[in-house]
Design a protein around this nucleic acid. Structure first.
Lengths: 210, 210
DNA sequence: ACCTGAACACCGTTCAAGT
DNA sequence: ACCTGAACACCGTTCAAGT
């Protein structure tokens, strides 16, 4: 009884009417813009509301608190990313395993790098919030997509598909994140990416040898 | 001239006298305890000061603002981690490359997992703060230690040591972080760790073949 | 020389009053 | 039915007053 129930991070209501959807879009847009321009520390509810052209009270109709707004923003981003991964995975069904891995590295890397300012802003915004549910939802979709893909590899069958898949996904996503955090760019980043691919391929070869 | 100079994240003064060092320790201890118990959102300067048994004003003598406190906390943690890595690397000079990698994975994994609550609290605390300087300082120390180690491998020489080293370090650290973020524990985590080692070894073999 | 804590500006959140 | 924004509690930060 001593522990307080955490407040829900879900949005308070769904945009059912068109007007509400427009309002929501404006709020999201204002949030990301302010996040990019001034950083998470300067992101206040008043400023978001003002930039979105609504009152604070209206914002609180859609988001029960500030964290829910940031949560929703990250949710949007991760859902779009999961979508991209699913598409690429589907496109590579039946291809050789090495090609699959290359495509996976490629899409994830590009998605994070294309708008590195947005990626960075979102990474930084997410702190001080319990984002495990977001991470898990994303991981489940990504795992499903890559597992389904790997199962159809034209040149390899895996004794333990789930294990190999989890390893590859964790290594790739983790490496990209870390490379990003370390600010590796340009030629250095390209080299790393090539080496990551080599590494994954060496792992695949090793597994098909067992 | 339009951009504002960011406030320094460095501590305001160094603890020169013994009393000050004690005070600083109390503040750090209070911070980590509150972070663990209530999370970063509930971490207020008033509460930290109260728990540390000092006044807010005193805290502001040592830290120019709240972020500097969190920055210093993470700095301590990363310096201790770098220290551990340096020790392990030194201990493995002259060993086979595969053993080196195993030791590196082991120490990093253990350091993050041993007090997973602390690791998680620090990850979450760091947001909304520019931590790139911290990350970079840590990366430089880790890179130096692992490069020096790999250069002495008894069974392998590397055509491009810097590249291989950067790849290994980025992959390992990134994977551990991602595994951690995905909340992989117990047998699943153990399996992943074993696979990560296999993968790094396969990569090493591939490189010595070239 | 160092510490204190009331005071200030501003933030997150609410809710009575508007339309 | 939905929106507004003044009001409230509380936070980060300062600084005159203490020792």
């Amino acid at each position: 009884m001593a522990s307080s129930t955490p407040r829900s991070l879900n949005a308070r209501k769904q945009p059912i009417q068109g007007r509400a959807a427009v309002t929501l879009d404006a709020v999201f847009e204002a949030t990301i813009q302010l996040l990019l321009r001034d950083g998470p520390h300067q992101l206040t509810t008043t400023r978001v509301a003002h930039r979105a052209g609504v009152s604070v009270g209206t914002m609180y109709q859609y988001f029960p608190h500030k964290q829910a707004l940031i949560y929703a923003l990250n949710d949007r981003y991760l859902k779009a990313l999961a979508e991209k991964i699913e598409v690429v995975c589907r496109e590579h069904h039946g291809k050789p395993a090495a090609d699959m891995i290359e495509a996976l590295i490629d899409i994830y890397w590009r998605a994070k790098t294309e708008r590195s300012d947005v990626t960075r802003a979102l990474y930084r915004s997410v702190a001080d919030m319990d984002n495990s549910a977001l991470i898990e939802a994303f991981a489940i979709r990504a795992d499903a997509a890559t597992t389904a893909m790997l199962a159809t590899a034209s040149d390899t069958t895996f004794a333990d598909l789930a294990l190999v898949n989890r390893t590859l996904v964790t290594v790739i996503f983790g490496t990209v994140r870390n490379a990003f955090e370390r600010n590796l760019t340009g030629a250095v980043a390209e080299d790393l990416r090539r080496e990551l691919l080599k590494m994954c391929r060496a792992y695949l070869t090793h597994h098909s040898h067992n």
